[in-house]
Amino acid sequence: MPPTKKQTNGASHEKPAKKKQPTQPKDEPKDTNGKTNGSSRKRKSPPTIATAPSKSRRSSRGGPTTPVDTVKLLNYLLSPSSLSLCRPKDETEDLKTRGANARAYSTSTFTPFEELVCALILSRPIGHMLGLRSIRTIFNEPYEYTTAKKIHEAGYEGVRKALDAARTQHRQKTAEEIVRMATMVVKNPEMDEDNLGMYGLREACNKSVEEERKMLKSNVKGLGKTGLDIFGRRVQGVWEEWYPFIDERTGRAVEELGLPGHAEELRKLVEEKWEELGVGDIEAQNEAEKKRKALVRILERAVGADLEGNVGALKAEAA
């Protein structure tokens, strides 16, 4: 997700400048943690597994991470009980009035096309609460802009009206990008006109994650690395080639909870503890898909708790 007040992708944590030491090289560059490149080299992230966050990273709340009971923590993250700590209070209250069938980013299963809409919205420089409110407003009554065709027919004015109702920011730019993407999908057979699985795009790219990312980035204006990471984090539940994937922002949040922040390590942990985890409410076609969707839920709730400043409270509740 893009940087917000609570959400900082790559925010600097440099210490105050010290007096110049005679042994310090004069112009040695530093990374975002205030370390010289000689001691902390930035690693290149492969398309399906994000760069592993530092193993020695301390909590952004000011202290070292606290050991946790892994099974208890995973089960709490997977349960409905954790939701109140992983999403804005605004969403919790809104869903009470919308009814049981209301669609929300924190609880609903979206089509890949809908995930693209969400990624566009959430990659805008707006707060977590406003992003989720925008998604709820667009996908629920009276708008229900859930397919490319519906968005294309509503046009800029229709989508802008929905964003106005959401009382969000950057409405003009966001509306333009959503409508432009929907129009492109409707007119481009490779993006798949049924708006559901986007099978056309997948076949055109031979289900290569790298090629799919390239095609999406080049065809969807406004969808940069942050948006693609948000999309990838969610779509891996149904697109197995993207699994396992953790973007750097979410990896840091996962580590805050005391879990592995690297995709492959967290996947292995979930596999090892699988028989002890409560995943009965996760709908899937088979066990493999259920495991992927379980990982998605864990990631979404971890990053949600971090964005809401509830990491400590979540760990306490899980214990």
Results as ranks from 00 to 15, higher is better:
residue 2 P to N: 12
residue 2 P to Q: 14
residue 5 K to F: 11
residue 6 K to L: 13
residue 7 Q to G: 15
residue 8 T to C: 08
residue 14 E to A: 12
residue 15 K to P: 05
residue 15 K to T: 14
residue 21 Q to N: 12
residue 24 Q to H: 04
residue 24 Q to R: 10
residue 24 Q to D: 12
residue 27 D to N: 13
residue 28 E to T: 11
residue 28 E to L: 02
residue 29 P to K: 10
residue 29 P to Q: 01
residue 32 T to C: 13
residue 34 G to Q: 04
residue 35 K to D: 14
residue 38 G to C: 12
residue 38 G to I: 12
residue 38 G to F: 13
residue 41 R to A: 07
residue 42 K to S: 09
residue 44 K to P: 00
residue 45 S to Y: 01
residue 48 T to L: 08
residue 49 I to H: 04
residue 51 T to M: 00
residue 53 P to R: 09
residue 53 P to W: 01
residue 55 K to R: 10
residue 57 R to Q: 09
residue 57 R to I: 03
residue 57 R to D: 02
residue 61 R to P: 01
residue 62 G to T: 01
residue 65 T to A: 12
residue 68 V to E: 10
residue 69 D to T: 11
residue 73 L to A: 00
residue 74 L to H: 05
residue 74 L to A: 02
residue 83 L to T: 01
residue 86 C to V: 03
residue 95 L to N: 12
residue 101 N to L: 14
residue 102 A to S: 14
residue 105 Y to R: 14
residue 106 S to N: 07
residue 107 T to N: 07
residue 108 S to R: 07
residue 115 E to G: 01
residue 116 L to Q: 14
residue 117 V to A: 06
residue 118 C to N: 05
residue 119 A to L: 08
residue 123 S to Y: 08
residue 125 P to D: 07
residue 126 I to L: 06
residue 126 I to F: 08
residue 128 H to L: 15
residue 129 M to I: 11
residue 131 G to E: 00
residue 131 G to H: 10
residue 135 I to C: 07
residue 141 E to Q: 10
residue 147 T to I: 02
residue 148 A to C: 03
residue 149 K to S: 09
residue 150 K to D: 00
residue 151 I to P: 00
residue 153 E to T: 15
residue 155 G to W: 05
residue 155 G to Y: 02
residue 156 Y to S: 11
residue 157 E to K: 12
residue 157 E to W: 07
residue 157 E to N: 09
residue 159 V to C: 01
residue 162 A to L: 05
residue 163 L to V: 02
residue 165 A to N: 10
residue 166 A to T: 04
residue 172 Q to C: 13
residue 175 A to T: 04
residue 175 A to N: 06
residue 179 V to Y: 03
residue 183 T to W: 07
residue 185 V to D: 09
residue 190 E to M: 14
residue 194 D to V: 04
residue 194 D to F: 05
residue 195 N to V: 08
residue 195 N to P: 00
residue 198 M to K: 04
residue 198 M to P: 04
residue 198 M to S: 06
residue 199 Y to L: 15
residue 204 A to N: 09
residue 204 A to T: 02
residue 206 N to F: 06
residue 208 S to L: 03
residue 209 V to H: 05
residue 209 V to N: 00
residue 210 E to D: 06
residue 213 R to H: 09
residue 214 K to T: 10
residue 217 K to W: 08
residue 221 K to D: 13
residue 223 L to E: 06
residue 226 T to P: 10
residue 235 V to A: 05
residue 235 V to C: 05
residue 238 V to G: 02
residue 246 I to F: 02
residue 249 R to F: 12
residue 251 G to Q: 07
residue 253 A to F: 09
residue 256 E to W: 02
residue 258 G to V: 03
residue 263 A to G: 02
residue 265 E to N: 12
residue 265 E to K: 06
residue 266 L to I: 02
residue 267 R to T: 13
residue 267 R to I: 08
residue 267 R to Q: 15
residue 268 K to C: 03
residue 269 L to T: 01
residue 271 E to Y: 06
residue 272 E to K: 11
residue 273 K to W: 07
residue 275 E to R: 12
residue 276 E to P: 07
residue 277 L to F: 02
residue 277 L to Q: 07
residue 282 I to K: 03
residue 283 E to H: 06
residue 289 E to L: 08
residue 289 E to K: 04
residue 289 E to F: 03
residue 289 E to A: 13
residue 298 I to M: 01
residue 302 A to C: 15
residue 305 A to E: 04
residue 308 E to Y: 05
residue 308 E to Q: 08
residue 309 G to K: 07
residue 312 G to F: 12
residue 314 L to Y: 09
residue 315 K to R: 15
residue 318 A to W: 02
